[in-house]
Every structure is written in C-alpha cells, then in structure tokens.
C-alpha cells in the first residue's frame, strides 16, 4: 500500500522548506482550507488525512495499530520519508499536536519546528493535573457518538472508498466534509481522549509554537500553559479566537501568529 494513497496526501505550493498540516479528531484535511493557502507561496505544503478520516483508505485501518497515537505518528513519519521531508514545519490541530510531538521524536531531523493548535497532552483530570474532563464524561462521549453518523451509512461506504478521485459521487449527500466511518470515529475518539502524552512533552527538542484560543472547552487555557511549561523550547500565543477550531473561525489570526514563528 502506497503511503500517498493510504493517507490521501496532497502536495502543493513551492519553496525550499516544507510545511505539513495534520487535522484533529472530528474532521479531515479540509480543516486547513483557510490556512494552508497562505503558506503555499513560500512553502511546499503537505495535506493529508489520518487513516479512517476523509479520503484515506479505510481498508488500511488496523485496530491494533491505531489503538495508540504512536500508530498515527508512524504514518506521519512514513509520509515524511516518502516525500523526503527535512527540517520541515509540522502544524498539528488538537490531537495531532501530540502526534507531531511523537513523530518528531521518532524521526530526528524530519521536523525543525512544531506548531500546536489547541494542544492537550491529557484530557482527563488526574490528581493535581487539570485536563478538563472526567473519565465518565469521555465514556459518555463515546456512547453519544453512536447517535451521530455524520451522513454516513453502510451503503454509502463503497462509493466513497472506491472513488476518492470522484467527489461528485458524494455531492448529493449532506455533510460532505469530514465524513467518517462511525466505528473508526469512535475508536479515534477513544485514543484521542484517553491518551496521556504528558511525559512525551519534555522530549520535544525543536522550537514549538502553541496557539491557545480563548474560551476553548476542549483544550482550555491551563492545559495550553501546561504544555508551554513542559516543552523546553516553546512559546505560547493567546488568540482572541474562541472555540476549538481557530483555523476555521479566525484563520487570519492563526496565519499571522504562525508567520512570526516560522
């Protein structure tokens, strides 16, 4: 299986340096549609979908491999090797911030800088640590996901899986962005919200930018500050943007902060 098809990789832009964008839980590479174009002039930009999301090859989904974020980080490293990335900028949203931290450790030299948009190394409270959620609330989320199928039905799956190059097949359907197989979405939610990557942050040895939104209930301010303290060479920028997806709600602010950093 070729990595490029497996992860629905798209390379655009020009320039000596590369910038790779990784989406978080709940969507796909569409998440970057308002940010990536701003960098395509000076960077070679790389967009991809995690296996199980968007236009990735669902047949490549392996329960065992993707039961930890390390499996997703392995994919990022494979994409990097395939494209010959060196000293690239890794931009991760939400859970992909941690995937980027893991990938940077797995392949020294591949990523020269990390940008973390709304990162959290641990969503569940534990002792003095504030993550914002209790274990029970996360279990409720996993149950609740069964109620929302995002326009997905089993009958539709073959059309999407077999024709990634023909999006018109899916056009009549609502929610054509961010479609995902419900079982995989649930498994991704589990690995996202139950992971604990606090110990990995200290091992990040490249300059890191943390973008912290105001009013983000998924990754709140104390969590962003924790990440900033834990990563040796990091800086944090507090955005005016609210919510968890500033890359969509306030792309200009995100682009400006990133430009200063890279």
């Amino acid at each position: 299986m070729r990595v490029i098809e497996r992860n629905n990789v798209h390379v655009r832009g020009s320039g000596g340096r590369s910038m790779i964008f990784a989406h978080g839980f709940g969507c796909d590479q569409n998440m970057w549609r308002l940010v990536e174009p701003a960098f395509a002039g000076e960077f070679k930009t790389v967009l991809f979908d995690h296996v199980g999301a968007g236009g990735s090859d669902l047949k490549a989904y392996d329960k065992e491999k993707y039961s930890s974020l390390a499996g997703y980080a392995d994919d990022v490293v494979e994409i990097g090797r395939e494209l010959g990335l060196a000293d690239a900028v890794f931009v991760g949203h939400s859970v992909s911030s941690m995937i980027g931290a893991l990938a940077a450790q797995k392949a020294p030299g591949m990523f020269g800088k990390l940008v973390m948009v709304g990162p959290s190394p641990r969503y569940i409270d534990e002792g003095d640590y504030f993550g914002g959620f209790t274990e029970r609330q996360i279990d409720e989320l996993l149950q609740f996901l069964d109620s929302n199928h995002m326009g997905w039905s089993v009958q539709m799956a073959p059309a999407i899986m077999g024709n990634p190059d023909r999006p018109e097949l899916g056009q009549e359907l609502t929610n054509s962005f961010c479609r995902t197989d419900p079982d995989i979405a649930k498994a991704f939610a589990r690995v996202t919200f139950k992971s604990d990557n606090r110990a990995d942050l200290g091992k990040v040895d490249v300059p890191t930018l943390i973008l912290q939104c105001s009013d983000d209930i998924i990754a709140s301010k104390p969590v962003g500050e924790f990440v900033n303290r834990a990563i040796p060479n990091s800086e944090i920028v507090f955005l005016e943007a609210t919510g968890h997806c500033p890359n969509l709600s306030a792309p200009d602010e995100v682009v400006a902060a990133m430009r200063t950093f890279v």
Binding site: L141, D216, L248
Partner: peptide
Amino acid sequence: NMAGRIYFETHIAPLLRMQGFF
C-alpha cells in the same frame, strides 16, 4: 451535556464554517 459540548466543538462548529449548514 459534556458529550454534546465536545461534539459541538469538534464537528458541528467546524462544519458550519465550512459548508454553512449542518
């Protein structure tokens, strides 16, 4: 409820920005 909050932030809000409806 908490599940609804997470779902709203991770799915509904981004989709509304992208396609204008959900």
